[in-house]
């Protein structure tokens, strides 16, 4: 049983399902589309406000992109459990660790690629559309870090989602945990640039520190990303444990 063969299988599985192709393409479409729209229409600092961050501003659509990444990760993993289809998959690849690793590698890899595309379009297009004088270039401080960091952020979020889905084995069940955890709480608590408190350590808020040009507060860009990695490792580890322990 070879890892490349298992990867190939997982790739065929993804590209042969419309729901997976669709949610994967929705990452750049939703994220870059909304980012460009907002930058083109509102791309200037609010008067009297000092916290305008031109880098973060071009990632306005990230919430929608990450929602698509979550849906993608959940469907890719939980979809296996629909009608016990996992039995067919595990009969073909009985080494569960290998199966799981291949699935995650393809999910994370695919999101990393589309995330990078989404990130580049959002940043370059967004900066170009902003009011003259506010847009910055990729060589400016924090810009390249944000462009690459955003792609990794999306990939990690999709892996987090896949890990949760491997534990819960259901699309709706997984989304009902992930959407509040990653999307709703942050909306309720407030803007990511307003640091402070335990909410900073939520996976999305910690991971999005890398999008700030000049982050301040408890978590820097890389330590924030490390917190997200820890969350992802927790979910992926729990999924691995569940997959190995349970009857298929």
């Amino acid at each position: 049983m070879s890892f490349p063969a298992a990867l190939h299988t997982e790739w065929i599985k993804i590209r042969s399902l419309r729901s997976l192709v669709g949610s994967l393409l929705a990452v750049p479409l939703a994220m870059a589309g909304l980012s460009l729209l907002i930058c083109g229409t509102l791309g200037r600092p609010v008067p009297d406000s000092t916290d305008f961050d031109p880098v973060l501003f071009s990632y306005y659509g990230l919430s929608f992109g990450q929602l698509a990444a979550i849906v993608f990760g959940v469907i890719a993993m939980a979809g296996e459990y629909k009608n016990a289809g996992i039995r067919i998959s595990l009969a073909a690849v009985p080494n569960r660790t290998l199966f799981y690793a291949a699935k995650l590698a393809v999910v994370g890899g695919a999101v990393l690629v589309v995330g990078l595309v989404a990130s580049l379009i959002s940043f370059l297009g967004g900066q170009a559309l902003m009011d003259r004088g506010f847009g910055i270039g990729i060589a400016d401080p924090g810009a390249l870090r944000a462009v690459i960091g955003c792609a990794f952020y999306l990939a990690l979020i999709s892996l987090l989602a896949a890990g949760v889905a491997a534990v819960l084995r259901s699309v709706t069940g997984s989304l009902s945990v992930l959407v509040p955890l990653v999307l709703i709480i942050s909306f309720v608590v407030g803007d990511v640039s307003q640091g402070g408190g335990a909410a900073d350590f939520l996976p999305d808020r910690a991971g999005q520190r890398i999008l700030l040009q000049h982050p301040s507060g408890a978590l820097g860009p890389w330590s924030g990303m490390a917190v997200l990695v820890a969350w992802t490792a927790l979910a992926v580890g729990a999924g691995w444990w569940a997959l190995r322990r349970r009857d298929a």
């Binding site: 049983m1 070879s2 063969a5 298992a6 190939h8 299988t9 065929i12 599985k13 042969s16 399902l17 419309r18 729901s19 979809g79 629909k82 009608n83 016990a84 289809g85 039995r87 067919i88 009969a91 073909a92 690849v93």
Partner: peptide, 26 residues
């Protein structure tokens, strides 16, 4: 093995289903 005919994912084509299986075992 055939365990459960309903287990194959309904949204895939028959060929894609078999191709995915074939790839895993080269």
């Amino acid at each position: 093995a055939l365990l459960d005919a309903q287990a194959a994912h309904g949204s895939r084509t028959a060929r894609a289903h078999l191709r995915a299986l074939a790839a895993s075992n080269r």
